[in-house]
């Protein structure tokens, strides 16, 4: 049930964003939104049953707050990542110290792992190369530590504290 509701909300949100300029100029706003609701529900009922991607997402108040807060954490990390890359690229000596390190994640749900892997890819000097079981293999442009424990602490922990609450 939860899975379907979330798919409907996502589809409807996409529809509203796509048709916002039409909605603003049309006279039958309610009709357009109703059409969106009907079509989103139909599409969700037809296709969302195959992969229950959002089945395990948590909707407790704390999880919702974290869900709203996470983009800010992510954007900050993205900005730092870019300044970091800019610094490395512009300095004449090209200060890199690359390695592929293994890190462990406590996240169980596939969606949580997907968001974690994507977040790692977009943040300072790290790129997710592979996932095997609960191990993520990260290409690290400036490997400060190469053992699993401390690398996990440095790369994963910052995101995981949020994602654990949201996705479990």
């Amino acid at each position: 049930m939860r899975n379907w509701v979330i798919v409907v909300i996502l589809l409807l949100g996409t529809w509203l964003l796509l048709s916002a300029d039409v909605l603003m100029s049309t006279t039958s706003v309610a009709g357009s939104i109703a059409a969106g609701v009907v079509v989103s529900t139909a599409v969700a009922l037809l296709f969302a049953g195959r992969k229950m991607l959002y089945k395990n997402i948590r909707l407790t108040p704390k999880a919702l707050v974290y869900l709203l807060f996470y983009p800010l954490v992510f954007l900050k990390a993205l900005l730092i990542a870019n300044l970091d890359v800019a610094r490395r690229v512009l300095s004449p000596s090209l200060p890199i110290n690359p390695a592929i390190v293994e890190v462990k994640t406590n996240l169980i749900s596939p969606l949580g792992r997907l968001v974690l892997a994507n977040s790692i890819t977009l943040t300072p000097g790290t790129l997710t190369v592979d996932i095997q079981g609960d191990s993520l293999y990260i290409h690290w442009i400036d490997a400060v530590s190469t053992d699993v424990q401390s690398a996990t602490e440095k790369i994963v922990r910052g995101f995981e504290t949020y994602l654990e609450v949201i996705y479990g």
Binding site: L78, L79, A81, N82, V85, A86, R88, V89, L90, L94, I96, P98, I100, T121, L122, G125, L127, V129, H139, I141
Partner: peptide
Amino acid sequence: LLGALGVVRMPDLFNRIQAGTKATTL
């Protein structure tokens, strides 16, 4: 532009992807 510069300057494919991904996203 910095991302493109990174793609040129980095020594191997993985480091190039690093530079390319972050810079193009932001």
